[in-house]
């Protein structure tokens, strides 16, 4: 049923992604592909993998953005995957009931046996979470590794999504964002975690932690290393030596 569950149980499983420490290594994306090529949505086949115009389905993509301008700019690596929204239009637009949001944990899934491949759900998602599998003629998406997180055959430590388990810098966290006392919820509260495109009103569950503000001393140190044209005797000049040092200190 593509109507959203009326009474959710309050559990909102999701990811918290720390943009301050993500190094953009793409390991999460690669491990996601590796796991899911054999998991719940398997196979996720690549079209023309060794030919011209290869086309492949990935549930997780890492984009790199430049934020700010000039010396103040910084590179932010930005992993993008399904946000398991509370108001997922990708689910409600589905004409067949193949797309659904689980009542017990909020995970958004596609039933590959009833999907007709009309692609309307991918049009309805502003986050690009859904990719069409041309080989199977159905839509595929992140399952939050539903086949790992409840998998009794895995060690408890491994019952997290593949992207979380593989992140070498611990930039990805998995947990219940519906529980205000969970580790992930506290992380969000502490760091000012935010949702993407709130203007769309999809109420994403996943949160992103913003890059920390750059320390002021570091900015100063950077400018001290930059050669500058000396302003000799002009307005506001403090000369050289000790006074220049005072000037520099006061200018910070």
């Amino acid at each position: 049923m593509t109507s959203l569950p009326r009474a959710s149980r309050g559990t909102k499983l999701g990811l918290v992604i720390d943009l301050d420490i993500c190094v953009g290594c793409h390991a999460c994306a690669v491990n996601c592909k590796e796991w899911n090529a054999g998991g719940h949505s398997a196979p996720i086949i690549d079209h023309n993998p060794y030919d011209k115009d290869p086309l492949s389905v990935w549930f997780n993509r890492v984009h790199s953005f430049e934020v700010g301008e000039g010396q103040e700019s910084r590179t932010v690596h930005f992993p993008r995957s399904c946000l398991h929204c509370e108001e997922p239009a990708c689910v409600t637009v589905c004409p067949t009931g193949a797309s659904y949001k689980r009542e017990e944990d909020g995970i958004v899934l596609v039933n590959a046996d009833t999907c007709i491949g009309c692609k309307l759900c991918s049009w309805a998602c502003p986050y690009g979470a859904r990719e069409y599998d041309h080989a199977e003629g159905v839509m595929k998406k992140c399952t939050l590794c539903i086949d790992r997180i409840y998998n009794q055959n895995l060690e408890e430590v491994d019952r997290v999504p593949a992207c979380v388990s593989t992140c070498p810098v611990n930039a990805r966290h998995f947990g219940d964002l519906g529980d205000p006392n969970s580790e992930v919820s506290r992380l969000v509260a502490e760091r000012g975690g935010y949702e993407l495109m709130p203007e769309m009103d999809y109420k994403p569950v996943n949160r992103y932690l913003p890059p920390r503000a750059r320390k002021v001393e570091q900015a100063g140190a950077l400018s001290a290393l930059t050669p500058e044209a000396r302003d000799e005797g002009g307005e506001g000049s403090m000369g050289t030596g000790f006074l220049a040092w005072v000037d520099q200190m006061l200018s910070r």
Binding site: L4, P95, T96, G97, G117, L120, Y132
Partner: peptide, 19 residues
């Protein structure tokens, strides 16, 4: 459609879906 033979399923979700 990726699966035209399943098109009949599309009449089921009229409560939520304009399609």
């Amino acid at each position: 459609l990726g699966h035209p033979e399943r098109a009949w399923r599309a009449v089921s979700q009229w409560r939520s879906s304009w399609l």
